[in-house]
Amino acid sequence: MKHGFGEFAEEQPMAPVIPLNTGAGEPPPGNGSLEDRLAAGLSFLRRRLAGDYEVDEFGYDPELAAGVLLPLARALYEHWFRVELRGLENVPADGCALIVANHSGTLPIDGLMLQVAVHDHVGRDLRLLGADLVYQVPVLGHLSRKAGHTLAHPADAARLLGKGELVGVFPEGFKGVGKPFRERYRLQRFGRGGFVETALRAGAPIVPCAIVGAEEIYPKIADLRALARLLGLPYFPITPTFPLLGVLGLVPLPSKWLIRFGEPMPMDGYGPEDADDPMTVFNLTDHVRETIQQTLYDTLLERGPAF
């Protein structure tokens, strides 16, 4: 059973999911009088104070995400990174799909930008899969859940795809996001192909996605391994501005971004049993990886200079 975004608020008979109140919480778009906006803002605040909103089983709080979290990211998206999109028609308008993207930038800001892109221009919620480290860190863990993300675990991914959701995944993980600047735009190993197994089991098409621009936001030129180990982090980056300028060094460099969605790869020719065939999984993983790598090079040429 496939659910479009519009059908989202309807009762789903078997899935133990509370219906999302998709209508609420969208802040009024720019038009409308100041008074109306004030009233809408106050009623939003009042609902938050009263706890009068709903979250789903993953902790996704659509009202908070659309009303607070995404607008913050949108400011970066529109004015700082000036993100441009290509191949939007390749993102399915309904039904489950797995968006597979390259990961870079030292801090995983590319995930947020991808979420804003899909939310604003496709009109769907992108459910990202994050590392378990995210959920161990105070504040970050529950904000990530409220934004609609969840743990990169096959069970979570399968559950989301089973509900017809659009799921985003970065198979490179920390190897990708924390790679040194000299290796920019070179894809790292794609985990163990777990995302392909999940897509095969769910029969979800894979949408390859290349994100250009995130590599330059925090160029990681060195890594303090000892300090990272001490803090329990996968790496401790040194960038031209961090930790030299302190907190100011956390401001990302304003690179120009281009996000390109490739043609969806349907899993029609395969069945769920192919998920248990390692050779099929390896081949598909390689195919997805090569497609993204090629798209990355093409998009990089199209973008031109980074700033």
């Binding site: 209508g23 609420a24 308008a93 604003d120 221009h121």
Partner: peptide, 26 residues
């Protein structure tokens, strides 16, 4: 806002958000 929120938000935000909003690029 307790008394006005429903009446106000109903027609404006209440409908299903099926159509992609800010349908700008692509």
């Amino acid at each position: 806002p307790a008394t006005t929120s429903h009446g106000r938000s109903g027609p404006r935000f209440g409908g299903p958000r099926a159509a992609p909003h800010e349908n700008g690029a692509g």
